[in-house]
């Protein structure tokens, strides 16, 4: 048998013995993320700020400086010009404008480019989002995140126990904070696909924590002599190879997406990969530490009385 980890129930890895250090690590990372969010802020994409975005393909590698000069000379001084993916692809971003007819900016820009640039240009993408719509999308996104967390909290409390539920959701909050922190630090653009990625991270990370929580519950019922700390260590050890294998396969496909999925998917893949890493970390350390700190015990996880009778009957059979 070929296995990443081979764990004996009597000799588990002592995850909880280092929980002081992981707690410090978590706190440091969260503080760093929050301060990045506060000082640098997120680089909100077009979806949330509103504005216009035009992606054009040139026949030769594009001269960005020349482009900027042309645009500045044609009342597009506020345009941000950058390469996108290849040397020949250029992305032009224009912030929302106060004056009339902002929905025609994209076409005006293309007219200017066609008139001033030699060789044909290929219009690859034009996006315009009105400021009102942007605001609504941001609101809807925040709401989605909140609703998702609450629904999960309710479901997990119903299926498990409130300490497990609360720690699961706290872990999710940590995941989201760290990913947003990274996006703020690197000033990567946050658009709708990143929002989708964050929700997918929530789904993924939760997957992890439920597998662990399930095992913790099972072991609390089964192992009567061990301390809660030992039970958690055993549960984590038993699920460790599953955690690693799944994280690994998911990371594999995400790396593929990052390198082959094209520019539009890149940010999405980055957010998710980051999510897989922090999600794995938080379901192994953060959540277990929290559950332990909230003082979980065997009694909390025993099945309700009615079922107990059934269990005994089983034993007689």
């Amino acid at each position: 048998m070929f296995q990443i980890t081979k764990i004996d129930e009597n000799n588990p890895l002592r995850f909880m013995s280092i929980n002081k250090w992981t707690t410090i690590l978590s706190v440091v990372l969260i503080v760093l993320s929050l301060s990045a969010l506060v000082t640098k802020g997120l680089n909100w994409g077009l979806d949330f700020t509103g504005g216009t975005l035009v992606e054009v393909g040139f026949e030769q590698p594009a001269d960005l400086e020349e482009l900027r000069t042309v645009l500045e000379g044609n009342e597009f001084g506020d345009a941000v010009v950058q390469n996108y993916g290849t040397q020949r692809d250029v992305l032009v971003r224009i912030p929302p404008r106060e004056d009339a007819a902002s929905d025609t900016i994209g076409n005006e820009l293309l007219t200017v480019l066609r008139a001033n640039i030699d060789g044909g240009i290929d219009v690859r993408r034009v996006e315009f989002v009105g400021p009102q719509v942007g605001e609504e999308l941001a609101e809807a996104g925040g709401l989605a995140m909140l609703v998702a967390l609450i629904c999960i909290l309710v479901y997990v409390s119903f299926r498990f126990e409130w300490r497990l539920a609360l720690s699961a959701v706290a872990g999710l909050a940590q995941d989201v904070t760290l990913i947003l922190g990274l996006f703020a630090l690197l000033q990567m653009q946050v658009d709708l696909t990143i929002l989708a990625a964050l929700l997918a991270v929530i789904g993924y990370s939760l997957n992890d924590s439920i597998v662990v929580a399930d095992r913790i519950r099972e072991n609390f019922r089964k192992l009567r002599k061990n301390t809660p700390e030992e039970v958690i260590d055993i549960s984590l050890s038993q699920t460790l190879s599953r955690t690693l294998v799944t994280s690994l396969t998911t990371l594999l496909v995400l790396l593929v997406l990052m390198f082959f999925g094209g520019q539009m998917i890149f940010g999405f893949a980055v957010a998710l990969s980051m999510g897989v890493v922090v999600g794995t970390y938080s379901s192994v350390f953060t959540r277990s530490t929290l559950v332990l700190a909230m003082g979980i015990s065997r009694e909390d996880l025993m099945p309700p009385e009615v079922e107990k009778e059934g269990e005994e009957q089983d034993n007689y059979l």
């Binding site: 929905d103 290929d122 690859r124 993408r125 034009v126 996006e127 315009f128 989002v129 719509v133």
Partner: peptide, 9 residues
């Protein structure tokens, strides 16, 4: 009034 546009070539 057009409040959102997404064009993909």
């Amino acid at each position: 009034q057009i409040v959102e546009e997404r064009t993909v070539g």
